[in-house]
Amino acid sequence: MSDIAAYGSLFLVALAAATIFPAQSELLLAGLHSSGNYHDGLLILAATTGNVAGSTVNWALGRYLMHFQDRRWFPVSRRLVERATGWYQRFGVWSLLLAWVPFIGDPLTLVAGILRVDLRLFLLLVTLGKLGRYVALIVAL
């Protein structure tokens, strides 16, 4: 696989993984890293950037499209939104550092949009959490 295709694929899988689509960016990252053919810093950059972009889509859904939450096509159930809101109310804006955690991270980013968290603060906290996760994964491999 060419470098551009590998990094681009990782970006797209990481983006999808941060939205409602089932995707495992960690598996692709681990595979590309294990091959020894790619630069770890660029792998981390592609995965983090894609995953943060996906979380930003969730933020925008919460910020601008929550009035559609009762429609069948809406990507997050009311139950998940309520659960994430509870996490957010318990830990505040710092809960966004956990945006990488399976099952709660995506709804947390949606709730951040609903609660109109400043996009700059959102991007900072979500990026720190997701970057930390991908760095830890590379180090563990």
Rank of each mutant, 00 (worst) to 15 (best):
W87P: 02
G86W: 09
F68D: 11
W100N: 11
G62W: 01
L61G: 11
L80G: 05
N58K: 01
G41T: 03
L110T: 02
I44K: 08
Y88L: 04
L110D: 02
Y64S: 12
R90H: 14
F103H: 07
H39N: 12
N51T: 09
A84I: 00
L45K: 06
G86Q: 09
R79N: 14
V93I: 15
R90E: 11
V76D: 05
Y88E: 07
L43S: 10
G54Y: 06
A112G: 14
G86F: 10
G41L: 15
S35F: 01
I104K: 08
F74I: 08
V52Q: 10
R83N: 02
L115C: 03
G62H: 05
G113A: 07
E82Q: 12
T109V: 06
R71F: 07
L98Y: 03
R78M: 07
R78Y: 03
Q89R: 14
A60T: 10
V52D: 07
T48N: 13
V81H: 00
E82F: 00
S95N: 08
N58Q: 08
G54M: 11
E82M: 02
V81D: 01
W73H: 03
L108A: 07
T85F: 00
A112D: 11
R83Y: 00
L97D: 04
G36N: 13
G92V: 06
D70S: 14
F74V: 06
L42W: 13
W59D: 03
F68S: 06
T109W: 01
T109R: 03
W59H: 02
L115A: 13
Q69P: 04
A46G: 06
R79H: 15
I104A: 14
N37W: 05
Y38S: 09
A84G: 05
S35I: 05
I114N: 05
I44D: 02
R116Q: 14
G36D: 13
S55N: 14
L119I: 15
W59A: 02
Y64N: 08
T56C: 10
Q69G: 09
W87G: 05
V111T: 12
S95M: 07
R79I: 11
V117N: 00
T85D: 14
